[in-house]
């Protein structure tokens, strides 16, 4: 009996080692980001060696034309690719519902390709393709390529939401004589809109983040921020890299929080 009693005292929800491992993982995930933020205020020009507090690298960043051009390019490409990929993703999500088996298998293998195939493969393939059909390297081509790999990310939340939708409003609308277009405009799209927003956000994040594809197919005046940062990391690693990174972290944070607030309000 006594053994049963001691057993009862153990809380099953606390497997041994789970808590310390969890804290370690969280620490591991965040300590590099904390390091970047802290060292962006380093006065030394060596990014790894702390001297004393200074905001000079932020000052330098704000006066760095190349960095600002790169940021603008990233945003331009990001917005264009987000809009294009979201529209194409909505169309695909709706069209694929009633697509025949063979067609949808083909479609899904294309949509899934960017998720499965290594980015470097698609990047050099795209470079070869552009070279073969004489698409000039630059922002236009980058938007084309970014849109392609953003589509699956924009599509995922939309498809998930479609699967959860209740049939009732659609049947009711149909019974009341609404035609296909009316149902689409008045019921389907409004019900899907939160998912469309999350899909678009996801696509934007993926595009802004992209390094490998942009590296291979960027052209005159179309260097994006990750390509620019990579160049900096390769040559002179000053805390300016940390300062730019911190600003980007801040930007990601703002986007995330605003989307969270937006979602809350909608509920």
């Amino acid at each position: 009996m006594s053994s049963v009693k001691t057993r009862k005292l153990v809380n099953l929800r606390n497997f041994p080692t789970f808590r310390p491992v969890s804290w370690f993982v969280l620490f591991f995930l965040y300590i590099p980001l904390v390091h970047v933020i802290v060292y962006s205020f380093n006065s030394s020009r060596i990014a790894t060696i702390w001297e004393h507090f200074s905001t000079k690298w932020y000052f330098k960043t704000f006066h760095n034309d190349d960095m600002q051009r790169a940021l603008k390019n990233s945003l331009k490409i990001g917005f264009a690719a987000t809009i294009l990929s979201t529209v194409l993703a909505v169309l695909a999500a709706l069209g694929l519902v009633r697509m025949r088996r063979l067609g949808s298998a083909f479609a899904w293998s294309l949509i899934g390709a960017p998720l499965i195939i290594a980015e470097i493969v698609l990047a050099v393939g795209t470079l070869g393709f552009f070279m073969a059909v004489h698409i000039p390297l630059g922002i236009f081509g980058m938007v084309l390529a970014h849109t392609a790999f953003c589509i699956p990310f924009a599509l995922l939340p939309i498809r998930a939401r479609l699967g959860q939708l209740d049939v009732a409003p659609f049947e009711a609308a149909a019974d009341l004589g609404a035609n296909e277009r009316q149902i689409l405009r008045r019921i389907t799209l409004p019900l899907l809109s939160p998912a469309i927003v999350s899909g678009a956000l996801l696509a934007f994040a993926i595009s802004i983040d992209d390094f490998i594809t942009s590296f291979f197919i960027s052209g005159p005046g179309s260097t994006t921020l990750p390509v620019y940062i990579f160049g900096m990391i390769r040559s002179t690693v000053t805390p300016e890299v940390d300062a730019i990174s911190t600003l980007l972290l801040l930007f990601s944070g703002i986007v995330l929080i605003s989307s969270y607030v937006l979602n809350r309000r909608r509920r």
Partner: peptide, 28 residues
């Protein structure tokens, strides 16, 4: 099923991905 419309709606996306994913892979 909810959200069903003409399957033709998916054609632009499929064509787009064929062009920007399918052809580069083929060229590789």
């Amino acid at each position: 099923r909810p959200g069903q419309t003409s399957p033709w709606l998916a054609i632009p996306t499929i064509a787009y991905l064929f062009l920007t994913i399918g052809i580069p892979l083929f060229i590789t």
